[in-house]
Design a protein around this nucleic acid. Structure first.
Lengths: 286, 286
DNA sequence: ATTGTCATGTCATTTTATTACAAATCAAAG
DNA sequence: CTTTGATTTGTAATAAAATGACATGACAAT
């Protein structure tokens, strides 16, 4: 809650002198944050300890702490809007627009994602005998990224961006296996068939794809990553970013589920890698 | 400009001790804003006046004034959150944290990126006879993504994530060719050698890597994508996202530079793809 | 009126920030 | 290599700010 609003709201519960302080702050918060306790006390026509007491009443450690809090609450968060790039945009403009629209997509995805579904996905993944990540076209980059993350967990993981290999892999799958399908559109026929095949072989199918899409219908669990974007000219890039972040969330959930001992194990792996940084190629981390 | 990024950017212009202060602040800004000048001086292992001088160098009235500014700059849209995931975080918590820290990285990268450098990079790319994207390990996903984008522009593009292929490709390069190297650390010896090789053959080298890193030194042009992050346990994921967005910015700049007729051409390609969506695999867009 | 409680202010103390100056470091010129 | 001058850095003194302890005063309940 914004500090100023909090003060406003609690005006009634303050004592006479404290209210004076509150009013002085509300009147000119910008001045208040740059004033010393003495200055502010003079402005509010109260004593210095009164100001201090006022600060503590608002659950802060003291006056300096309060100033910090107030200063932060005065910042107006830049609303990130999705803006389209125009032909006559210069580098400053399109750079800002692309970054901001990506940020907006992430923010929206953050709020849209259902944490209960995430939890279920993590449950399924931690119990999996074998995990496979499949994507086609641009989504294959996401699948590779996923492989890169999960391969560290020392469980059988695979990743194919070739439809034939995907199908073959599905035919060989069985109960306990998890297939993660990644598709921006959720309408690619080949991938829908892959999902079908996987389920026929009792594998569990998780899809990173828009809700209600054909692919979603064929999956056991859907992590909807739909990021509405201008697909007219430019590429469906934000959705890929969102997908990668979702993968990261799953990997993190996986790590946490494995518990502290597992994290220690990861730390050791990492330290091992660090030591050899200058001697050989680090394929995990570059 | 966000204070933290300002500090990051001016790291080079500080004196030895001042840099220590800067690094201490960057390492834990939220601790810094709640510390006294004495505490911070101890953390940075410098004297108190040095901290004060550092603050003044950043155009503030003194330490308290600086703290206020820093505190405000730590606010991003949504109130600033603790970026680190803890063992006892539930799905809601780690989901939010991961998304928010990624957003914070993007926001910071947006402001750190030098648009003049972007412009130059786009210049070079549009004039290139041949473009190659190279990355190792996790960064190879970014290189693939770049290939995916640039291949549409109907110019010779390639992408290798194998060090031998990369070197062979460099040996065969010549003036007019552009090599884009992607590295989170900028310290991978093999990639530095690749840069060296490319330059020996008169190719132009663009690096997506932290400033002042060994790889950066060997490159003609550096797009610094350093995203400070907790690399202790979890993976350098945000930096990869940032790299992908930078690639997107370059691709967009490329498109715009080619002019309206080129955009028309892209639109037609896209329409062509749409018509066949349900019949065959769309390798470009899924 | 009297007593107890709470709010407030005064003054002393402690903590924090700043200034002035001296020592140390470093680079350029002899 | 020295020497010189400039710059950086730290030490110690000083000033400013915040907090704490305590006393006074206001007000309500008896």
């Amino acid at each position: 809650m914004k500090t100023l609003e909090l003060i406003q709201k609690n005006l009634g519960s303050f004592s006479k002198s404290e209210r004076k302080v509150a009013e002085a702050i509300i009147a000119s918060p910008e001045v208040a944050i740059h004033s010393s306790i003495a200055t502010l006390a003079k402005m509010a026509e109260v004593s210095e300890p009164t100001v201090n007491r006022f600060c503590r009443r608002l659950d802060t450690k003291g006056f300096p702490d309060f100033k910090l809090l107030l200063a932060q609450s005065l910042v107006i968060g830049t609303p990130y809007v999705n803006r389209n790039v125009n032909q006559d945009d210069g580098p400053e403009a399109y750079n800002a627009k692309i970054f901001e629209s990506t940020i907006a997509s992430l923010d929206s995805a953050k709020n849209m994602l259902d944490t209960a579904t995430i939890k279920r996905a993590v449950d399924v993944l931690t119990r999996a005998d074998k995990i496979a990540f499949f994507g086609l076209g641009a989504s294959s980059a996401v699948a590779h990224d996923a492989l890169n993350k999960f391969i560290r967990f020392n469980i059988p993981v695979s990743c194919f961006d070739d439809i034939v290999m995907q199908k073959m892999s599905c035919i060989n799958s069985r109960k306990g296996d998890v297939i993660v399908l990644i598709s921006h559109t959720g309408r690619t026929k080949a991938l829908v068939e892959v999902a079908q095949l996987a389920r026929e072989n009792n594998a569990f199918v998780i899809a990173l794809t828009p809700n209600h899409s054909p692919l979603a219908e064929k999956s056991d669990l859907v992590l909807s990553a739909s990021a509405p974007e201008d697909t007219d000219i430019y590429m469906p890039m934000a959705s890929r970013i969102v997908q990668m972040v979702i993968i990261d969330v799953l990997a993190t959930g996986f790590t946490l589920r494995r518990g502290p001992k597992f994290i220690e194990h990861l730390k050791r792996i990492k330290t091992g890698i660090k030591d050899s940084r200058f001697d050989k190629v680090d394929l995990n981390e570059d």
